[in-house]
Amino acid sequence: MEFEEYLITKKIDVNAFRKADAARFEEWSNLFQTMHPESFTAHKKFLVNEIRRRYHLKGE
């Protein structure tokens, strides 16, 4: 699974996140490549929720 796909499953707008917080996006993208998606979620759980509230993916 790619990082962008992961963000979509978490209902996070990839483009908005990348544009507004490029440093964090890049950091998380690199970290995601080294971890299983479930491990990444466990490691960043509260931060993922914060990012989802900021960059919520509008309707599918």
Rank of each mutant, 00 (worst) to 15 (best):
E2V: 01
E4F: 00
E5Q: 05
E5D: 12
E5G: 04
Y6I: 03
L7P: 08
L7D: 06
I8F: 00
K10D: 04
K10N: 10
K11D: 10
K11W: 13
I12A: 10
D13I: 04
D13R: 09
D13P: 07
D13G: 07
V14R: 02
V14D: 01
A16W: 14
F17E: 07
F17M: 10
R18Y: 13
K19D: 13
A20P: 01
A20C: 10
A22V: 05
A23L: 09
A23K: 11
A23S: 10
R24Q: 03
F25E: 02
F25K: 01
E26K: 15
E26G: 10
E27F: 09
E27G: 02
W28G: 00
W28N: 02
S29P: 14
N30G: 15
L31D: 13
F32H: 11
F32S: 12
T34V: 09
T34H: 09
M35A: 04
H36T: 14
H36E: 15
E38G: 11
S39A: 11
S39P: 02
F40P: 05
T41L: 03
A42H: 05
A42L: 06
H43D: 00
H43P: 00
K44V: 00
K44H: 10
K45Q: 07
F46W: 00
L47G: 05
L47Q: 09
V48L: 13
N49Y: 01
E50Y: 02
E50M: 03
R52E: 02
R52G: 01
R53D: 04
R53G: 02
R53W: 00
R54Q: 06
Y55I: 01
Y55G: 06
H56V: 12
H56A: 12
H56N: 14
L57R: 11
L57C: 11
L57K: 14
K58E: 10
K58H: 13
K58C: 10
G59F: 15
E60S: 11
E60A: 14
E60M: 07
E60I: 08
